[in-house]
């Protein structure tokens, strides 16, 4: 599995990395801009990511915008349906409004409230079918 962690905060990023590292290749991005270009590169190499953990509040480009751009890129490349990359939004505040926006506009697959717990993240991954029961 190829994973992209998008998170501006060093500690959160390291925690995430620790949880998912054993699942496969794990790349990191500091903000939305980096994430989009990483995603674009992966598409060009024909080796797209399977999972993106995306922080909502980030400098330069926030998670919402990033998600929309990623979905637009997929559309451009004719990627759709269950081939779309699974995206889990991570958010520091339990802000239903922005989660709703990500769900409806960006078709994200789930959200997690920080601090991220190993158990909840792995449960979520099982729920969206990325790791087996």
């Amino acid at each position: 599995m190829k994973i992209l962690l998008v998170e501006d905060d060093f500690i959160s990023r390291t925690v995430l990395q620790g949880i998912v590292a054993h699942l496969g290749v794990c790349h990191q991005a500091m903000d939305g801009k980096e994430a989009v270009s990483a995603y674009r590169r992966a598409l060009a190499e024909n080796d797209p990511y399977n999972l993106i953990c995306l922080d909502i509040m980030m400098p330069n480009m926030d998670g919402q915008e990033t998600l929309l751009r990623i979905r637009a890129l997929e559309k451009e490349h004719g990627i759709g349906g269950s081939d779309m990359v699974k995206v889990i939004m991570t958010t520091a505040l339990n802000d239903p409004k922005s989660i709703m926006a990500a769900m409806v506009k960006g078709s994200c697959d789930g959200y997690l409230v920080k601090p991220i717990q190993r158990g909840t993240l792995l449960a979520k991954l099982r729920e969206i079918g990325l790791i087996s029961q």
């Binding site: 559309k75 759709g80 349906g81 078709s107």
Partner: peptide
């Protein structure tokens, strides 16, 4: 794909 995304979004 669009229709798929519609239902996906509603599901989520």
């Amino acid at each position: 794909h669009e229709v798929f995304r519609l239902f996906h979004s509603i599901k989520g």
